[in-house]
Design a protein around this nucleic acid. Structure first.
Length: 156
DNA sequence: GCCAACGTTGGC
DNA sequence: GCCAACGTTGGC
């Protein structure tokens, strides 16, 4: 079991949207490192911290679970999508995604400020300046700490 | 809205 | 393969 942190802008797709949708293809990832994590490293059942970026304030707002194997991101071939990638070959799709399913919403957000202030979370990627990656691995220790800060039990 | 950080593109 | 220009992310 691995742990992850996935970023999303609440104005675009927030934790409330995932809660409503229950399950969602994580489309629009156009960064190779993030894609590789999603395509190669994730396994069905892995847990992820759902993080609101570009929010006031930014922070961890809930948990999601990897719900599918990797498959081609359909938006790369959709000319009307802002994620359209004309250079991606349908026979060898450049961008892969997985579905995520809603697990729970934190009773209260754990803000980036709180994450940064917590000694036990030292080294966590999202707290580091200049980390723009939208998908980052999280250690089991850090994952449990964020859950305890949020006041939730680590799901089975 | 600003701007630092940093990934990508493309000319050479 | 270098690197300048450019675009994007995301905190502030």
């Amino acid at each position: 079991m691995k742990y992850w942190l996935i970023k999303s802008e609440p104005d675009v797709f927030g934790i409330a949207d995932l809660k409503k949708a229950k399950r969602e293809p994580w489309d629009g990832i156009r960064n190779y490192q993030a894609r590789n994590f999603m395509r190669d490293e994730m396994e069905i059942g892995d847990l992820a911290i759902f993080y609101h970026s570009n929010a006031k304030p930014p922070g961890a707002v809930g948990l999601a679970r990897v719900a599918s194997d990797a498959y081609p991101d359909p938006s790369q071939f959709d000319e009307k999508s802002k994620y359209h990638d004309p250079k991606s070959n349908p026979d060898d799709p450049r961008w892969m995604l997985r579905d995520f399913e809603f697990v729970l919403e934190f009773p209260e957000m754990v803000s980036l400020e709180e994450l940064k202030a917590e000694k036990a979370l030292e080294g966590m990627m999202v707290t580091q300046r200049g980390t723009r990656l939208s998908i980052t691995p999280v250690t089991a220790k850090h994952f449990r700490k964020v859950c305890s800060m949020a006041g939730v039990k680590v799901p089975k």
